[in-house]
Design a protein around this nucleic acid. Structure first.
Lengths: 213, 213, 213, 213
DNA sequence: TCATAAGCGAGACGGTACGTCTTGTCTTCTC
DNA sequence: GAGAAGACAAGACGTACCGTCTCGCTTATGA
């Protein structure tokens, strides 16, 4: 679906001339991920990606305005892999998401790239929006979905004020994603099952108590 | 104290020849922070920093092997500003730290630089160590201190197993720092007093419940 | 014709991509001569030449591997100016060439550059070949032409052995060019008409006597 | 005697403090020649010479103002080796000098260095004087000496006008030195006995004929 | 079927920054 | 005060990428 979204850029219906090669798109994103794995963000160069993809640099710039946008798109698709299966309880659901997210951050192409584009996004509003659309918002959906399940199970109360509900979802998302990212990249310690359990315990306890408030 | 630590690099007791200029060290770090504010991480260039500092590029490279290490040192000193004052309760203490940390992350020189060096550190062990020593470990101390205060106040129980205690401190540190960083840089929303209160509420509730476990 | 020779470098028939700018070639050689006049060999820098030519350094390095080769090409074209007009006698022809060559060596761009590239050529075979092709061989042709005229006039006998003839031409070339260069650059005295007359007298006398041998 | 001349620079009679090390002078000139052999003129650096000589750069700059002057002095001493032995005839004397001079130019340290300093001297009057004093004038003496011998033998007539005599000596010097240098460095052909014989024949014939004029 | 229009590869182009190297000066301590 | 050691300002070096451009060629569409 990310692919859909991205390709929609080319959907201009009235278009003459040779159409853009879909194969090139694929090859470039693939090459980008490969280059990220091998070289990391800072050593990745557009020329190198083009060469790997067997594509001219022009072709690359015709589709992405900069290294940053290319990398966001290349990485975004990975985040679609996270799914929230119903594991029967809020605790189990959160633990599952935490471990999935951690596994994803362990992959070398995300590890470097994610922080790098976030760093760049602090200076580039277009990039920030792209990140939000391509990555953040879709993940935030997982939190909402998880909460709905917990409410259906009776683990969490329904929140009547939609604004409060949204704020809560945001907070929980920042706590989960933030903790996992920080543990993985800044503290540089592994997110194993033990840590996931400890963290989830803390969070669920916090959530439960917050209920009353 | 950071300055001490950094300058210890030059402490070689048997040293002939002209000694390194301490003024240059200072000027370079100052220039680096200024350049970060103006240009951000990715546009910051060694030549520019040297020019701002009124120093030759060689002088700069004699002290720091790369842009990354220079920036870590330049930014590290800022983190010393966070202090944990006794505000009378665990909740107030945490809220204080959260707001201080957020204020620090709002500063343009930290905003970009921090994520960027973290991104680089995923590919560079020496850099990761430098970050840990210069930034992470010192902040982790704040968590320990805050817990001791809470224990003295009777808000938290004493943990007899030192390993468990350490693990807990790490977890709490990742949750606090992670949430603030994620809110600020990834979600790109402000950490205001309201958010700080909500987050602290969640965390303190979680901590309290965890006690029994 | 030098230009032809140089441009032949680009004659590759199967060539895709944007072709090299001929204007850049010209601008660079012009800028090089200007820089030689102003700064001399040792202070001439590639960056400066590029800037004068309104060209990127890369463009310059794409065409010439080093300062030396660039300067040889830039200077070579000047040597095409020497022509041997028929002045009616061997003596007059030689005097003419001597004065033309001296005038050329007086020009600031040749003065420094010629000796400098010769100096470098003692360590660099490719450079030596380039100098030979671009400068030496073409000048040697003048000697041959002058001899033919003298032979036609009956001033010199025809040499039947072509190898001996070639050796003689080489010798005469080294004597003429060597004496003028040495007088101009090493002794640092002017080559005026008087000196030219004395030198020619000596040489013609030597040639006449050599005839019988 | 060159050494004398050079060291006279330090003869200041009223001088307090530690005297300059004579060993350093020797070591530096030796190191310079060694570096010339290995690296050639353009790759020779003052730092490298200092290191080879086991001497600080300061020591080096205290004695020579620049790379050029150092090299002139280092090379000059070599030219003292040429002597003009009485071989019984003008022809033999000239042939001897030509071969000695050629042998000297074949040495790698002179080959590169000589042309290089000459090139620099076209832009630097002080350097030109130093070359003249250290190298040119002393060699010109050889020509005068050779002529005196030839006059004593009756091979050449005495010239009554001293100015004409001086001009002649200069001319002959430029012809001999110029031809050998040009043959060796520009034409890049060897000066063997055959060439020396041919050249000498030409020169002596020219000299003989010039006599009457 | 043939012009028009865009895509595409190749690679040159003007720039900017890189990290290294030299130059000649300076500052410190030791002899 | 000479000398060894080495820091320093200045600036050139040659390389690597950037993002743009200019070629000649290919592949669609629509007149």
């Amino acid at each position: 679906m990310v692919a859909d979204m991205l390709s929609r850029r080319h959907d201009n219906p009235t278009r003459s001339g040779r159409p853009r090669s879909a194969a090139a798109d694929t090859a470039i994103l693939l090459a980008t991920r490969a280059a990220l794995v091998e070289l990391g963000w800072s050593k990745l160069s557009m020329g190198d990606v083009a060469a790997r993809a067997g594509v001219a640099k022009t072709t690359l710039y015709r589709r992405w305005a900069s290294k940053n946008e290319l990398v966001v798109d290349a990485v975004a698709v990975i985040f679609d892999e996270i799914e929230i299966h119903d594991r029967g309880s809020l605790t189990a659901d959160i633990e599952g998401v935490v471990l999935q997210f951690a596994a994803l951050l362990e992959r070398p192409e995300t590890k470097t790239a994610l922080m790098a584009v976030v760093a760049e996004s602090t200076r580039d509003d277009a990039l920030r929006d792209r990140i939000r659309t391509a990555i953040v918002d879709r993940q935030k959906g997982l939190v909402v979905k998880g909460r709905e399940r917990a409410q259906a199970r009776g683990e969490l109360a329904y929140e009547s004020d939609p604004e409060v509900a949204a704020r809560n979802a945001d907070l929980i998302f920042d706590v989960i994603a933030g903790a996992v990212v920080h543990r993985t990249l800044v503290s540089a310690e592994p997110v194993d099952e033990e840590w996931a359990r400890g963290f989830t315990l803390l969070l669920v306890a916090g959530l439960g108590a917050n209920q009353g408030a």
